Computed example of a mutant assay.
Amino acid sequence: MKNTFITTGLLALSFISTNAQNNSVPVYLDDKQPIELRIEDALKRMTLEEKTRLSYAQGKFSSPGCPRLGIPELWMSDGPHGVRAEINWNDWGYAGWTSDSCTAFPALTCLAASWNTTLAADYGKAIGEEARYREKDVLLGPGVNIYRTPLNGRNFEYLGEDPYLAAELCVPYIQGVQKNGVAACVKHYALNNQELWRGHIDVQLSDRALREIYLPAFQAAVERGGVWSIMGAYNKVRGTHATHHKLLNNDILKGEWNFDGCVITDWGAAHDTYEAAMYGLDIEMGSYTNGLTSESEFGYDDYYLGKNYLQMVKDGKIPMEVVNEKAARVLRLIFRTAMNREKPFGSITSEEHY
């Protein structure tokens, strides 16, 4: 499937060459133009269906671009300690490739114990090189949730129990990854502080605890790290699922912190079409469907941001400015990663990485 879109990309390059003589190159294909101008140009050319289709998966770890316009798909991979072995297109089995080995880096809890920002930068750069070599556009890490119990099954992949330490170490990690034209995806936003009952547990806390303990690392990731994507958490916060949460996403993340990237669900963390559309979710991944299999009664179009989202827009229940803003964020991520022609080639399992 990926080869199909590689071909699409080559056609897009051919299109540039053909039209250059006529000075009619679409702005969105010209990576010498400011990225916001490219986004504006692409949005003018896209149909409503193409805009909404940007916002949900087409495979287990891929979301679509706009093939008609030569805008490529996004490929994501689990982190944050190594680039996950290739998963099958439409199920959770491993593809069994013999060419996708990766360096297994120490867990982030070990990185946190080093108190070493230089090492964090080297770590991020190295794992970003491996993701780039594997042609991944988004690396799902680092994790910066705060340890609240030793029984949390994900403690090993977070940067410790101190908000200041996690903030100081995640910033160079993110910058190191993104030097490779690969987006870091800081997770799990927010308050995913235990794995037990994570899909429905409802976290109640004071504003002071939220601001002083649980959000500083995420804020540093956005304001100082310049992170390009953030992963929404499974749990509820004050009665609403975090992945489409007005306070967390609209008011704080995109409002106060001026985050210009994408909010991506953890796999299967979306629960409502209207909330997902209106409260800041940009890309929905991993919702519980059977995907593209021919016997499927429940496929990717049945995601919350799938056909129901499109219909709600057509019915006037969701404004077009919401659609355009969401599509712009996905396009910005694609232009920073998959359509970035300045990114290096990357490397994998090198002596330096070991």
Rank of each mutant, 00 (worst) to 15 (best):
T117D: 11
Y133P: 01
A190P: 00
D251A: 12
W89T: 14
L37D: 15
G70P: 05
P319S: 12
G79T: 07
G128Y: 07
M76A: 12
L54P: 10
G226I: 04
G65P: 07
G79S: 06
M312Q: 15
T349K: 15
M285E: 03
M231Q: 11
A184I: 05
L331F: 10
Y304G: 08
L292V: 13
G268Q: 05
A190W: 00
I252H: 01
V83L: 03
V27M: 12
V27K: 14
R84C: 04
G153P: 06
P26V: 06
K314T: 07
A338G: 08
I201G: 00
P172D: 09
S14G: 13
V177P: 02
V330N: 10
S17G: 14
A113I: 04
A42Q: 05
A131D: 04
I39D: 01
E168W: 00
G96I: 08
E195L: 03
I6S: 08
Y56V: 02
F5S: 09
P344C: 02
N308C: 06
A107G: 03
L10M: 12
I87H: 00
Q175D: 02
F15N: 15
G128P: 01
Q175I: 11
H200C: 12
T98Y: 07
I39F: 06
A12H: 02
R329P: 04
